[in-house]
């Protein structure tokens, strides 16, 4: 009798038997958190990019933009707090979901052949942490001035040019932006799916739009180190 009970497919489950999980404790809830925090971070990226592109307007314009920002501490700190929270929650959910992922399939396949998924979508667990590591360096580089290149608090323009004149650093930025772009390509449309929005007419368009936005963000960000390397943005117009 014992043995039978163990092999019974469906004993009574009941609401008491079904784990009474709170929304946040389900994988679905964590994905919703990732979606919301992810879209906040993506929104910041757009603003950040628009700000950065002012570098092409010249040293004065760019430095004035930076100065204006610093004169709005409420905006800057507000943004920083929201971003920190979003990043924290995004990473916290990721860590928990990564743990769930590995426990859900403890034995790997000897052969596994993906059928449809994009490289970007399968590598979110790699692109994410690499981008996070990049962000730490990026903050050291341009916010704290501890990135190993010349840094003057009053001259962000100069800092950028000095930073990107170093080929390995510029290349690292471009690569990081590539990974970020891949992460966005899957993350942006995933936002809708994870929050329950999918429609046969619009979802394919959303996926396309996500890819376009991801590429534009890559091109925008990557244009700056490339421009510095090619000498299009340089120190001596000063």
């Amino acid at each position: 009798m014992e043995l039978t009970q163990k092999n019974m497919s469906t004993s009574a489950v009941g609401i008491a038997g079904a784990p009474n999980l709170r929304f946040w404790n389900t994988t679905n809830g964590k994905k919703a958190i990732m979606a919301v925090t992810g879209v906040i971070l993506a929104g910041f990226l757009v603003g950040h990019l628009l700000g950065n592109l002012q570098i092409f307007l010249g040293r004065d314009a760019f430095n004035r933009y930076a100065e204006n920002l610093h004169n709005l501490p409420a905006l800057v700190w507000g943004t920083r707090v929201v971003l920190l929270l979003a990043v924290g929650l995004h990473i916290w959910s990721t860590v928990q979901l990564a743990d769930r992922k590995s426990s859900a399939r403890p034995v790997a396949y000897q052969k596994y052949t993906p059928q449809t998924s994009t490289y970007a979508s399968r590598t979110m667990y790699m692109s994410g942490p690499i981008v996070a590591a990049f962000i730490v360096y990026h903050l050291m580089h341009f916010t704290f001035g501890t990135g190993g290149t010349e840094y003057h608090y009053y001259d962000p323009y100069g800092n950028v040019v000095a930073g990107f004149k170093v080929l390995p650093i510029a290349l690292a930025y471009v690569v990081a932006m590539g990974l970020l772009s891949m992460h966005l390509r899957h993350g942006l449309w995933s936002f809708f799916q994870s929050l329950g929005l999918n429609h046969p007419a619009y979802t394919p368009k959303l996926k396309g739009a996500a890819a376009v936005i991801a590429v534009l963000i890559f091109l925008g960000f990557a244009s700056i180190p490339v421009a510095v390397l090619l000498g299009a943005v340089k120190q001596d117009i000063f």
């Binding site: 019974m8 004993s11 009941g14």
Partner: peptide
């Protein structure tokens, strides 16, 4: 089965 009124013995 969930209500506990039927016990299922598959296999």
């Amino acid at each position: 089965i969930d209500a506990g009124r039927v016990t299922m013995f598959p296999r």
